[in-house]
Write a protein that binds this DNA or RNA. Structure first.
Lengths: 115, 115
DNA sequence: CTCCAATATGCCTCGGCGGTTATATGCACG
DNA sequence: CGTGCATATAACCGCCGAGGCATATTGGAG
């Protein structure tokens, strides 16, 4: 059930955004995630449950370990939500940039999210 | 300044997302917003305060009315946050068989969304 | 079968959020 | 100056979410 609200509220938590950022690098087991973001194991498991129910992550069972990985679909949904607004800020950036420069590409320059 | 968390949690509420969507069409006074999304006036004012403090909206005072309008900057921040993940799901779409001739730049290449 | 390691889940507490009602503030107008 | 409209704020309350601790569950090793 990945309705928009569960997706947004899943990402509203900074710890969960950290987890998502971790999983962007590579899939990880719960233990790794616990160690990386310094939360307790039960708390981490709960966050992972929220992310799971929001459709943001998937689990693969490997012996006793459970390896979590990002599911790109909800990210795409976010992107779709964002699309109309992107027009808006492109427009206003354009209005600004008209006086500044011709740099129309102010987008993806950030290789690593730290959040 | 609006940290990421206040931005995300501001958008985590469906009513606030409705308000933002309303303001995407055009700036509106509080009364209009109240009428459109069916909330009470105090509740609406609170939501607007949250959006204001997240930097998502700005106010212009017009006599007794206060006209709210979208500020595109935080939307751009969201877009920036999304960028690394967008690469991910582009990749997976590719894995599904889509042949995207992307060179190395999967950034905003002006998708020209239709109205 | 038993024990252990890895993870999930239940209960409890607490702080914050969203809603409502009542009230304050600010501005225009007679 | 007082009245009325538009909006913000205060005070209060119910609820949900996040964290901690203890415990259940599951799979593997011996």
């Amino acid at each position: 059930m990945s309705d928009d609200t569960s997706l947004w509220s899943a990402l509203a938590d900074p710890h969960r955004r950290s987890i998502v950022a971790l999983l962007l690098e590579r899939p990880r087991s719960v233990g790794e995630i616990v160690e990386e973001c310094g939360l307790s194991q039960p708390s981490t498991s709960k966050h992972l449950k929220v992310l799971r129910e929001a459709g943001l992550v998937r689990v693969r069972q490997d012996a006793q370990r459970r390896v979590y990985a990002l599911d790109p679909a909800p990210i795409a949904a976010l992107d779709a939500w964002l699309a109309p607004y992107r027009k808006l800020w492109n427009r206003s950036l354009d209005a600004l940039g008209r006086r500044l420069d011709e740099t129309s590409d102010t987008s993806t320059e950030d290789p690593s999210p730290k959040d």
